[in-house]
Design a protein around this nucleic acid. Structure first.
Lengths: 228, 228
DNA sequence: GTCACTCTATGACTCTTAGTCAGTATACGC
DNA sequence: GCGTATACTGACTAAGAGTCATAGAGTGAC
């Protein structure tokens, strides 16, 4: 990942050409990387993380297996990069839903955010599956720490939008709990809890209520409950 | 698992002795099975599902690897049986907490149930880790369908206690939502959502609130919110 | 043009581990 | 004691993650 720039160290003449070549190389590397990531996305989304082998990815990307490892340290790291894509999409959706340049009241804003979160998971079930698969600690050991840090950063980016909405709700008196981060945590935990529960077939069977209905009820219950 | 009882078909004389031997065999088999399960519990709890090999379990149980497979079809099935143990404990705890022979009001009963759920996960973090690890679909394919069914049954057993408490709360006017299963689902999803969120180190970092505090707030918010 | 050098790509190889099975041992009924 | 059933075993197979020695293409200097 830390690309060598050794050619830059060659003595200074015809520097322009040198830079041109180097940057083309860089572009080509990025392209290859994207090819592998695209191939991985395809097969992971189709058959799930565990059913896919690194050879499958290599074949789909039309490269050798060794090449895959030239760009990604482990299978888990590839997954982590797809997760980052998913998080980017999610945060973008939340940004739009919360849209602080619009003059909505807090209730509307919280509702829009909640619905955006639900829609994201309904429209991107594959990303959701990846995020859930990623969730368990097993990966922590196998992925690049830098990537792990990235996941953290994106996630924080997401909850900050939620927190802003909560603060607005406090100002408007809709939410009476003091600590905004805690209120945001309750909202996130509650809504996410519904998704977690109903995304597992076994648990969905136990709860025996459809996602939209339970999620809607949860949204109301949380907003109403946070208002004491 | 479906033990052959062929010796029983032998002609009837000295039937008492025959049964005695057969039942001793049965007991010995059960004992061996328990040994393996105990060994698996030990190593899984210590090092986690993925870090443990079936050979590790065999060594810990002081049997050959083949013997392990004589009693359990797959590594995942062993895990599933430990999960069943955990669920049994949990349901027992909930039973005590909800204790319908005591004359508690609905609010007290719901609170006690919520706290019992929290305490279970705090006192049995290993069982919790297993339950969460089990959660993802990967296992579904690898475990015995009968065991999977058992997990479902136990879980249903657990939520039924919650549902009874919800119904009482409806009678007492504490909860105004019509569908008791939906209200129970909201409670479960919400409380479990907090556990899920805070049991993942990355997410715990994001939420930046301690478990007891967030869980307590969630309990209040849910009960209050379900009362409209 | 061509030589030296660097960067990229590769797939055969290693290593680990889940799951199998042919062979062995023990216990039992007769 | 003998034949059979049952329990046990660990060497073996299969599969897949990750490595590395080798090949080859591209580049700049002359």
């Amino acid at each position: 990942m830390t690309r060598g720039v050794s050619c830059m160290t060659q003595s200074g003449n015809s520097n322009g050409q040198l830079r041109g070549t180097a940057s083309r190389r860089e572009r080509e590397r990025a392209q290859r990387r994207d090819d592998i990531l695209r191939a991985a996305r395809e097969v992971f989304f189709q058959r799930g993380f565990h059913a896919v082998t690194v050879d499958d990815i290599a074949v789909a990307a039309e490269v050798g297996k060794g090449t895959v490892y030239l760009y990604f340290n482990t299978k888990e790291t590839i997954l982590a990069h797809l997760l980052l894509e998913g998080l980017d999409r999610l945060v973008a959706d939340l940004k739009i839903a919360y849209a602080f340049d619009e003059a909505w009241d807090a209730h509307t804003r919280l509702h829009r955010g909640a619905i955006a979160y639900l829609k994201f998971f309904q429209n991107n079930p594959e990303y959701y599956r990846l995020i859930m698969a990623f969730d368990r600690g097993q990966f922590q050991a196998a992925i690049d720490p830098a990537v792990y840090q990235e996941v953290l950063t994106r996630s924080l980016d997401g909850i900050e939008w939620l927190e802003r909405a909560v603060k607005q709700a406090q100002v408007e008196g809709l939410i009476t709990i003091e600590n905004p981060r805690e209120a945001a945590g309750v909202l996130w935990a509650g809504l996410n809890g519904v998704l977690v529960l109903l995304s597992h077939p076994l648990r969905a069977e136990i709860v025996a209520t459809d996602l939209d209905s339970l999620y809607g009820t949860m949204t109301e219950v949380l907003i109403s409950g946070l208002g004491k």
